[in-house]
């Protein structure tokens, strides 16, 4: 390097990342930032007797914040998301661990594909599939009754249970793969070091594997939680009108052209997701070595 790089070359190099970011940035502006602006605007309008009134009022916000019905809706939405996240993690972590410990790469690929398969099926087909499986005369109840575990069929569908089962199922890959990725990044000699220092399987897991895969768990929880917050089709088809999560309310509002309510509900969903993301990023900072 005897001669310094020409100035223009340096500038081009500095500009290159921005040029590459430009298309994504333009798309985001058009499809996300501008709509949020109009959300904000519509949120201040009024909706009365089936008509939209271009006003400036906090009426919709007030109703949303102080009406006990909407409190219940928000709480339900958060509850569904929390339960789904917990179940998906509880099922997904051992699954990821098992996948990681498999000795054969061929088996790993096949199991990976099976875990990924829920995403390959359309949400409508999957939801109807679950209604068939979980119905009173469905396969699950039939098996449980034949096994003598229950006398009466369980109410597994058209309620919270059905929604939770189906959502946990479809979010499984989004939970398994971040955790699995965190596990494959682990230096295998760390587990050996723990065992060498006298730790059995459980101590090694609790004190080495689990803390070091925490970033994967947090990432997985974040994905599952935000996806569950926004789920619409599954609660609509499997909730039986008893699971009144916020996306359903927003959907209903849009079909009634109640734009102010749809806007406020949408903003509330966005805010909840943002809080979840910020919280998990906080957690990630603690989890980092």
């Amino acid at each position: 390097m005897s001669t310094p790089a020409p100035r223009t070359g340096g500038m081009a190099r500095a500009a290159a990342p921005w040029l590459l970011l430009l298309p994504a940035f333009a798309l985001m502006t058009y499809a996300f930032i501008l709509p949020i602006g109009s959300f904000l605007e519509y949120g201040f309008y009024r909706f009365e007797r089936g008509r939209l009134i271009q006003d400036f009022t906090f009426a919709t916000y007030r109703r949303f914040l102080f009406d006990p019905y909407y409190h219940a809706v928000i709480l339900d939405t958060l509850k569904v998301a929390a339960i789904v996240t917990t179940i998906a993690l509880a099922v997904g972590y051992p699954l990821a661990y098992g996948l990681w410990r498999l000795q054969s790469p061929a088996l790993q690929r096949w199991f990976g594909l099976i875990i990924f398969s829920p995403v390959l099926v359309s949400v409508v087909v999957r939801s109807y599939g679950w209604t068939v499986l979980l119905a009173d005369q469905g396969a699950v109840n039939w098996a449980l009754m034949r096994a003598g575990l229950i006398g009466e069929p369980l109410e597994l569908v058209y309620n919270l249970t059905g929604v939770v089962i189906s959502l946990s199922h479809v979010f499984l890959p989004f939970v398994v793969f971040p955790i699995y990725a965190a596990m494959t990044r682990l230096d295998p000699s760390l587990r050996e070091a723990a065992m060498d220092l006298g730790a059995g399987w459980w101590t090694t897991f609790r004190r080495v594997t689990l803390p070091l895969t925490l970033p994967g768990i947090v990432a997985a929880a974040q994905i599952a939680f935000t996806l569950a917050l926004g789920a619409l089709v599954t609660p609509a088809l499997l909730g039986g009108g008893r699971v009144l999560v916020l996306p359903l309310q927003v959907y209903r509002a849009t079909s009634e052209i109640n734009w102010p309510f749809a806007a406020v509900g949408g903003l509330a969903l966005l805010l909840m997701a943002l809080v979840a993301v910020v919280l998990s990023n906080r957690l990630l900072r603690y989890a980092e070595p």
């Binding site: 230096d187 000699s189 760390l190 050996e192 070091a193 060498d196 220092l197 803390p211 070091l212 070595p289």
Partner: peptide
């Protein structure tokens, strides 16, 4: 009754 010093030391990063 053995302990090992690993090639890349394998210290617990956390």
């Amino acid at each position: 009754p053995t302990n090992m010093v690993f090639q890349r030391w394998a210290l617990f990063p956390h």
